[in-house]
């Protein structure tokens, strides 16, 4: 599952661009968020967390 620190997010869109499943988008409020309906599509690959320059999104592994 994904954990967002919304206050840190600057809406750069890097996470959405590199998400292999198209789970993320930048909302009208200029924040990263899960595309409605794609809540269960995340495969916890960690691309968004690794590339986020703002430490605004983290991947929590299932069971962790």
């Amino acid at each position: 599952m994904l954990k967002f620190y919304t206050k840190r997010c600057k809406g750069c869109g890097i996470c959405a661009h590199f998400c292999p499943r198209g789970v993320l988008e930048i909302t009208e409020l200029n924040k990263s968020a899960i595309v409605p309906g794609k809540e269960n599509d995340c495969i916890s690959c960690g691309q968004c967390e690794m590339r986020c320059p703002d430490y605004a999104i983290f991947v929590k592994k299932e069971g962790a």
Binding site: K7, R8, K10, C12, P53, D54, Y55, A56
Partner: peptide
Amino acid sequence: LPHLWCPGCGNGVVLG
């Protein structure tokens, strides 16, 4: 945090 770098600036990645 948030740091002062612009949206999409890579400095945060390097620091991480």
